[in-house]
């Protein structure tokens, strides 16, 4: 780092270290005056003090000015924490970024900055504001993804069909993500209910591709590993043909043409369980 840049950095560090309390209270006052999110002064004080401490630490690291906020993990986390909390309280991304930006005058106000020093503070805080914006976008993304997953779970219910018999009636196009969720919820239900037989009914599934067929095969394998049986029902001649064309061997899997037939088979398996030895397939 060139000498004058280094000197500017040290000057800013000294200014921040020597005026922590003043910077914090100036910042808190600014936020309270704006009254954006409903956060009390005490909490605001804690938030900004965490950021100031981490900022000082980060400045002590060998990181370029504009990378202190992203490269020094504790600082990035402190800014992200503030952003997430504010976002949950309903603050807009602009309001959050503005709050971060207002650290600039708070810091510069307690020193008589040289040009280089003012630039440095600007670069530092701009990067921090970007972090806060990114965090906002990400947490929105997270919420959307969580809602998507919940929708998937609702659309694939596991039904308790009979004593120790579970079924998942699959309807609609199966993609890999959905097949994965079906598999997990079915296997978890087997464990929770100590079910002896699981029926996967694909009457309502129009097409099957390799990935989905593989998921189905894995479900069957996992079911057997847990000590239960799996019956696949509702395979139409068209699906059977598709599966054969994909070169997938379903011969090891118990299949029935209708859900009713599958249930009959399942009841037979439940009765059989506890009386006869079952030699594993495969």
């Amino acid at each position: 780092m060139p000498g004058d840049r280094q000197a500017a950095r040290e000057a800013v560090m000294r200014a921040i270290a020597g005026n922590r309390g003043r910077i914090a209270s100036t910042w808190v006052d600014t936020q309270l005056a704006r009254a954006t999110p409903a956060i009390g002064g005490e909490e605001l004080g804690e938030e900004v003090q965490a950021i100031i401490s981490c900022l000082l630490e980060g400045l002590g690291r060998d990181l370029p000015d504009d990378r202190v906020a992203t490269g020094h993990a504790p600082l990035r986390e402190a800014v992200a924490d503030l952003s997430r909390r504010w976002a949950r309280l309903g603050a807009s991304p602009t309001a959050i970024a503005t709050a971060v930006f207002s650290l600039k005058p708070a810091i510069l106000g307690c020193m008589a900055p040289q040009a280089e020093e003012a630039l440095l503070v600007g670069r530092l805080i701009d990067a921090a504001a970007l972090v806060s914006f990114q965090t906002y976008v990400d947490s929105r993304e997270e919420i959307i993804q969580r809602q998507n997953r919940q929708l998937l779970e609702i659309s694939t219910p596991v039904v308790h069909l009979w004593h120790r018999v579970l079924a998942v009636p699959l309807i609609g196009t199966l993609d890999s993500a959905r097949a994965q969720i079906v598999m997990e919820s079915l296997l978890q239900a087997i464990q929770d209910h100590q079910a002896a037989v699981a029926i996967i009914d694909i009457t309502g599934v129009p097409t099957v591709d390799t990935v989905v067929a593989q998921h189905l095969m894995q479900t069957v394998t996992a079911t057997r590993l847990m000590g239960a049986d799996c019956v696949l029902s509702g395979i139409s001649p068209r699906i059977a043909q598709m599966v054969a064309q994909l070169g997938i061997d379903l011969s090891e899997i118990t299949t029935r043409s209708s859900l009713a037939d599958a249930l009959t088979e399942a009841m037979r398996l439940v009765q059989e369980e506890g009386r006869t030895e079952r030699t594993p397939a495969g």
Partner: peptide, 9 residues
């Protein structure tokens, strides 16, 4: 080190 900006060890 935090040399890789996209990840934290």
């Amino acid at each position: 080190t935090h040399s890789d900006l996209s990840s934290t060890s």
